[in-house]
Amino acid sequence: MIQLDQLTKHFGAVRALDNLSLEVKEGVVYGLIGPNGAGKTTAMNILATLLLPDTGTARVGGRDVVQEPRVVRQLIGYMQDFFGVYDGLRASEYLDFFAAAYRIPVARRSQLIQDLLELVNLPDKGEVYVDTLSRGMKQRLALARCLVHDPPVLILDEPASGLDPRARAELKEIIRQLKHLNKTVLISSHILPELAEMCDEVAILDHGRLVTCGPVEEITRVSQGSRYLKVEVIERAQELVAFLNSQPAVSGVRVEGLSVKFFHLGDPVQQAQLLQNLVTAGWPVLEFGEVRRNLEEAFMAVTGEEGGVEDGA
């Protein structure tokens, strides 16, 4: 449903996208993850026909976004990370405005607006002025606006940004409903655990390049062939860091209490050798093994980040 092929985009001297290629199949909720400047928003803006790529092609529903922008606009619902409001417009009028923009017949609009407000859990807010709604409600209204012309593809740039936990949970539920409606959803977020819960597949971007992509489970299990290991010791966990850093195929060492977690790029034989080295060196090892990674740890593994993931693209 969405295809990016060798997409490159520069802003002056900055390369925002660097030969980015990825494919999103129909009915899939697809997450884009990446730190600031990773190129998530640029890729989304190209798909939304707001930007021209320097080279490469982008297609939605088989239609080229550069050659056929008008057709593509009918195929997508686009929501940017910041939801701007129109003062002095009611929620129903706001949706009616976009319905008119998409040339939905007047006779159909009233029922359509009511259905959409119900879908996003705002059934009684039709007569409320948009600027008086909470941020969470505005985001849901923006989602309803994206759906006004029933597009098969939704492009949602950081939809959970700035929402409180309750609003995030509601948004997540709506995205689940959209998946049941067989919508293809491209979504970016910095809240990785939530993205893992919402998405079928994810792509990790860094400096405009695709680092890795695939089903969430696969990404979290194997990231560039490394294993995520944990050594638990009875004491001297901090001192163990230096020892581990001196060992071959070890990177990204982090201490959590008496546990030390790290990435190991070696094969099982080398892994066994590492354990043997630890015991021989006299470290009081209580536990040694592979830990199941969450998406954030996978993200850090593949992008080489030591800190957390930042907001924005």
Partner: peptide, 16 residues
């Protein structure tokens, strides 16, 4: 004003 309210991009992705 549309640009400052961040509503211009949304308008530009419609068939208008």
């Amino acid at each position: 004003g549309e640009r400052e309210r961040q509503t211009l991009n949304v308008l530009l992705t419609t068939p208008l």
